[in-house]
Amino acid sequence: MLPPRILRRLVLAPLVIVATVFMLVTLPFWLVVTAAASLRLPPPQRRGLRFVWFGVAWLTLESAVLIACLWLWVAGGARRRERHYGLIRWFLSKVYAAAVRIFRLTVEVEEPDPTPEERAARLTRPVIVLSRHAGPGDSFLLIYLLLAVYRRRPRIVMKAALQYDPSLDVVINRLPNAFVPRRSGHRHVVEEIHRLAATMEDQDALVIFPEGGNFTPRRRRLAIRRLEDKGLTEEAERARGMDHLLPPRPNGAITAIEACPTADVVFVAHTGLDELITIGDVWRRLPFSAHITAKWWRVPAAEVPAEREDRIRWLYDHWEQIDAWITAQRLART
């Protein structure tokens, strides 16, 4: 059970700062111990030093964000959204830079060449972003791209347990986002999506992961069986044809479109670290150089189907397109 907000502020937030100071003071010890332990492993598996460096960098940035949030609160700026979006942009930019240096991360984004009309519309209307959900840190990478590269103000529905992270807890709760308890059910998630979509302005971007979770073969089988049990034979058959994605749950996306009919829809695909789902996977199999390829497709609001059944087929059409793109990317790497 998540502790009350006042307890999280008084205990968890200071604890991060104390842990940061401790790690910085004892860093030479951890580097020596990790280096000694890594000598017994082959070079591709010597990830300990990189994880220590990244962990210290993350804690330091978390502490900086918490101190900045405290200053904003004292100075009366706790309700100023642009300052908090700027703070998140700074944090994610530094995390991204650390990942580039420490894990040799490279990100390649394929995007269509916009027409002059599309280029002018990019920041004059809101967007609904529908992204696949796979691999570590995909949410952070997507939010970083939206904030730092495309200058958007993202909104997202997240699991309530993420509030155990003090910086997320403080900053995200000061912005138009939503945390939902684990047992709240899909209906509550959809209600929060409607609330966030209905109040979007020109530079806002609502981020939705229609799969509802990371892809695994077991989850794929269960999702197909669930569609069959509901009598959705067409959707089940189309889901069987997708090798890398879970079938999309349409209610959230359709609710967002209905709540904000002027928004363009952006479909996002990415691949590169798909098979690294758990922390154990990352520890055992993170490559020496990490490369992520992403691609997005933009659908103007006027081209979004009007009827619900047509929207579901349209959503599956794009999901099949993403699946085919992932297949092509993996074949290109072999």
Results as ranks from 00 to 15, higher is better:
Pro4Gln: 05
Leu10Tyr: 01
Ala13Trp: 04
Ala13Thr: 08
Ala13Lys: 05
Leu15Met: 14
Ile17Val: 11
Phe22Thr: 09
Met23Ile: 04
Val25His: 04
Leu27Tyr: 10
Pro28Cys: 01
Phe29Tyr: 11
Trp30Asn: 03
Ala35Thr: 12
Ala35Val: 00
Ala36Leu: 15
Ser38Met: 09
Leu39Glu: 01
Arg40Cys: 13
Pro44Gly: 05
Gln45Trp: 07
Leu49Val: 08
Phe51Trp: 13
Gly55Met: 01
Val56Arg: 04
Val56Cys: 14
Val56Phe: 03
Trp58Asp: 00
Leu59Cys: 09
Thr60Met: 11
Val65Gln: 03
Ala68His: 00
Ala68Gln: 10
Ala78Lys: 09
Arg80Lys: 13
Tyr85Ala: 05
Gly86Phe: 09
Trp90Leu: 07
Leu92Asn: 11
Arg104Cys: 05
Leu105Pro: 10
Thr106Asp: 14
Thr106Lys: 13
Glu111Gln: 11
Thr115His: 05
Pro116Ile: 04
Leu123Arg: 08
Pro126His: 06
Arg132Val: 07
Asp138Met: 07
Phe140Trp: 13
Leu141Pro: 00
Leu142Asn: 06
Ile143Met: 14
Leu147Met: 04
Ala148Arg: 01
Tyr150Met: 10
Arg152Gly: 08
Pro154Ile: 06
Leu162His: 06
Tyr164Leu: 12
Pro166Arg: 07
Asp169Glu: 12
Asp169Asn: 15
Pro176Asp: 08
Arg182Pro: 04
Gly185Gln: 01
His186Ala: 15
His188Trp: 00
Val190Ile: 13
Glu192Thr: 00
Ile193Ala: 06
Ala197Pro: 02
Thr199Tyr: 00
Thr199Cys: 03
Glu201Asn: 05
Glu201Ser: 09
Ala205Gly: 05
Phe209Trp: 02
Pro217Phe: 07
Arg218Thr: 13
Ala223Trp: 07
Gly231Asp: 09
His244Glu: 08
Pro247Tyr: 05
Ala253Gly: 08
Thr255Val: 00
Glu258Val: 01
Glu258Gly: 00
Cys260Ala: 14
Ala269Gly: 15
Asp274Ile: 09
Ile277Ser: 08
Thr278Lys: 03
Asp281Arg: 01
Leu286Asn: 07
His291Lys: 15
Trp296Leu: 10
Ala306Gln: 13
Glu309Gln: 12
Arg313Val: 14
Leu315Ile: 10
Leu315Met: 12
Tyr316Gln: 04
Gln321Asn: 08
Ile322Gly: 05
Ile322Lys: 11
Ile322Ala: 08
Asp323Gln: 10
Ala324Thr: 14
Thr327Ile: 00
Arg330Glu: 13
Arg330Gly: 08
